[in-house]
């Protein structure tokens, strides 16, 4: 019996909006990695002394570095939204025998996010 097997296009993920969003979500990891590199450059600059730190600040103010970081920020935010949004589906949390509703799990994640972000900001800006 001969059957027809639909070929898979190389860029199959352009076929549906949801797939595009998925690939963008996965690509956010590249920007997470970029952030690690950026962070380590900062750490290196700070530990090398004031002049080195100033050079880092100048470099990071260049338009193309800012541009990369703005794009990275958007991707990281996409990561945050999708990660927190999917979290309740991966974990079934029970408190005293009752399943915690999904919205509460999501809300807890955002709350933790806000608290941690505030703590970091306070530590840096103090």
């Amino acid at each position: 019996m001969s059957v027809y097997q639909r070929p898979v296009h190389l860029l199959w993920w352009l076929e549906r909006r949801a797939y595009v969003l998925f690939v963008l979500r996965e690509l956010s990891s590249v920007f997470v990695a970029w952030f690690v590199v950026f962070l380590l450059l900062l750490v290196n600059a700070v530990s090398d002394g004031t002049a080195s730190y100033q050079r880092f600040l100048d470099w990071s103010g260049q338009w193309w570095v800012v541009a990369i970081n703005v794009v990275a920020m958007l991707f990281v935010l996409l990561h945050v939204v999708t990660w927190f949004g999917l979290a309740p589906r991966a974990m079934a949390i029970k408190v005293r025998g009752r399943r915690v509703p999904a919205q509460q799990i999501v809300a807890a994640h955002y709350l933790a996010w806000l608290v941690l972000s505030a703590a970091v900001a306070w530590l840096v800006l103090r």
Partner: peptide, 15 residues
């Protein structure tokens, strides 16, 4: 960890 920590650090130092 990335979701919790990266946005604020990237925002401060990157932007």
């Amino acid at each position: 960890v990335a979701a919790l920590m990266v946005p604020i650090l990237l925002f401060l130092f990157g932007i």
